[in-house]
Design a binder for these strands. Structure first.
Length: 513
RNA sequence: GGUCCGUUCGUCUAGGGGUUAGGACGUAUCCCUUUCACGGAUAAAACACGGGUUCGAUUCCCGUACGGACUACCA
């Protein structure tokens, strides 16, 4: 019996959760479910200057909407809380001190000016990568260079300080990544990262390792942007003596912009013609609004299915997967290595699929909602008819209302191109006769078949070829040149309304020949 | 610049020493259809390049090119 799998999604509440983060959360969720383990959410709010009110709630709502709610989180704590790093603040210092005691970390008192001066000096000396590392730390103000007394005095007098990791000068750091295989980095290229900031908060690196350890995390599934700092993290596990329980790493390929230039970022929201956030978001400081997939009409199941396939596939040719099926099929081994461009067309295809295969009453509800919002009421029967009519042509829930405008509203103007081409004497003659027939009373029920039969007999009586004037008929009643089955539209409209619209068209449109 | 990661149709990808390199989205054409869609069929479309290993490389190795990430007291 192996240890229970525990994974975490650890976002920073610095704004709206973006779609890449959502995919990371999804993979964590799928893996946890697949392995019968737990999916936790930890809020990494160690940077107090970047905290954005509402961001945490946004993350929660997004995950809930997607149906991938965590098993343990700040709002549903398990036994290893708190689940906000700001609330764990008190514990980090002792771990940092432990590292100092073990000789793997040290106090550094350099001011930002001094750090800046150091970088400038190194740059001037043509050092390619100026950094605070095993070489340069010997020339800086830290507990490695200062006397023990001075360090003690500085600490006692409240001098601002940070605690830095003391990385080995030359050592091969090697670790296994579930997606990339063995990754080898030489410690000389690493720098002495700050572990504790001068405000008493830990940096990501320290907090992350300590919390993952304390929370029993077995697998760290995160974005590839973390790959360069993974060696540091591995070293920290070693420094703490936690190597035995060190989680396995899986660094996910990044989501790229559609043009392939750079990773998809929060700033791309809407500029690319599609949302990059799950839900609408208004920045509380700038007031800047970004739109979300949800408000743009994407169904959570569709977005989930789409996201799952951005960098992963089941190895066979199936593409439509429910969450349950994804859980069943998921494996980290089948996650790809290369960056993935975001293709909104595919997302739309998934959405169409899920929308069109939805339950009739759900689709009716979409239409009813929009109609109501527009101040109109639709009978259940009429709404049902419209849904059936449009079902195979919609992409988003809002399409039912949008694409049935011509049913709710009689045309006041007509597609000029079609009018110019198709509106002729024959059409007018037929329409005139058809309107007469409709008004003189039709047998109930006036369904699509009846509407068609009547139109056909009218055509016969007037000796007009129906095929030649059909588009004009459509134009007269809907104002448009194309659309769903016209006879079904007539049935929904009813004979009186159809006749009325024909009369209006007859009065309005000029005949061309 | 440095370190690390990557590279199969336009996009998401399958595959893997010998294949007609498969699927999906998108695109195009045809069929269906009294329009547009749906549905069906078909088509165009890819192994970045150069070496090496090998009887044989898209597949393995090495380079190059290109792309990406990182390079903060941000995560």
């Amino acid at each position: 019996m192996t240890k229970e799998v525990r994974v975490r999604f650890a976002p920073s509440p610095t704004g709206a959760l973006h779609i890449g983060g959502l995919r990371t959360a999804l993979y964590n969720y799928l893996f946890a479910r697949k392995m019968g383990g737990k999916f936790l959410l930890r809020i990494e709010d160690t940077d107090q200057t970047r905290f954005v009110p509402g961001a945490e709630e946004y993350i929660q709502e997004s995950l809930d909407w997607m149906g991938i709610s965590p098993d343990e989180s700040p709002w549903k704590p398990g036994s290893v809380g708190p689940y906000r790093q700001s609330e764990r603040k008190a514990s980090y210092m002792s771990y940092a001190l432990d590292l100092i005691e073990k000789g793997h970390a040290y106090y550094a008192f350099d001011t930002s000016e001094e750090l800046e001066a150091m970088r400038e000096r190194l740059t001037a000396a043509r050092v390619v990568q100026p950094q605070y590392n095993s070489i340069t730390r010997t020339q800086m103000k830290n507990s490695l260079t200062l006397s023990a007394t001075e360090v003690k005095e500085r600490l006692a007098s409240g001098d601002p300080y940070v605690i830095r990791a003391k990385l080995p000068l030359k050592e091969e750091v090697r670790f296994h990544d579930l997606i990339r295989g063995w990754v080898l980095v030489h410690s000389s290229t690493l720098d002495d990262k700050v572990l504790m900031k001068s405000d008493g908060m830990p940096t990501y690196h320290l907090a992350n390792i300590v919390d993952d350890h304390l929370m029993g995390i077995t697998h760290v599934i995160r974005g590839e942007e973390w790959l360069p700092s993974a060696p540091l993290h591995v070293l920290l596990y070693r420094f703490f003596g936690w190597e035995d329980t060190m989680p396995q790493f899986a660094h996910l390929p990044l989501l790229l912009k559609p043009d392939g230039n750079g990773k998809l970022s929060k700033r791309d929201g809407d500029k690319l013609g599609f949302p990059v956030f799950p839900l609408n978001w208004t920045d509380p400081f700038s007031g800047e609004k970004s739109s979300g997939f949800r408000e743009n009409g994407y169904l959570p199941d569709a977005l989930l299915n789409f996201l799952a396939f951005l960098g992963w596939n089941p190895g066979d040719e199936r593409e439509i997967f429910s969450v349950e099926e994804l859980v069943e099929a998921f494996s980290i081994e089948r996650i790809g290595k290369s960056g993935t461009k975001f293709d909104i067309a595919k997302a739309k295809w998934f959405n169409e699929h899920y929308l069109r295969s939805g339950a009739q009453e759900d689709l009716i509800a979409y239409l009813q909602q929009d109609a109501q919002a527009a101040g109109t009421t639709l009978s259940q029967e009429k709404a049902g008819a419209i849904v059936s009519l449009l079902r195979d042509r919609v992409t988003f829930p809002g399409d039912f209302w949008r694409d049935s405008q011509f049913i709710s509203h009689a045309p006041t103007q007509f597609d000029t191109e079609v009018a110019a081409k198709k509106w002729n004497a024959d059409a007018a003659t037929l329409l005139q006769a058809y309107a007469n027939a409709l008004e003189s009373g039709v047998a109930a029920p006036f369904d699509g078949t009846a509407a068609k039969a009547l139109l056909e007999s009218t055509a016969e009586a007037t000796s007009i070829k129906l095929g030649k004037v059909m588009q004009a008929v459509r134009l007269a009643v809907t104002g448009l040149g194309a659309g769903p089955d016209l006879m079904e539209v007539f049935a929904i409209l009813g004979p009186q309304e159809v006749a009325k619209r024909i009369r209006f068209a007859l009065d309005t449109l000029a005949i061309v020949d």
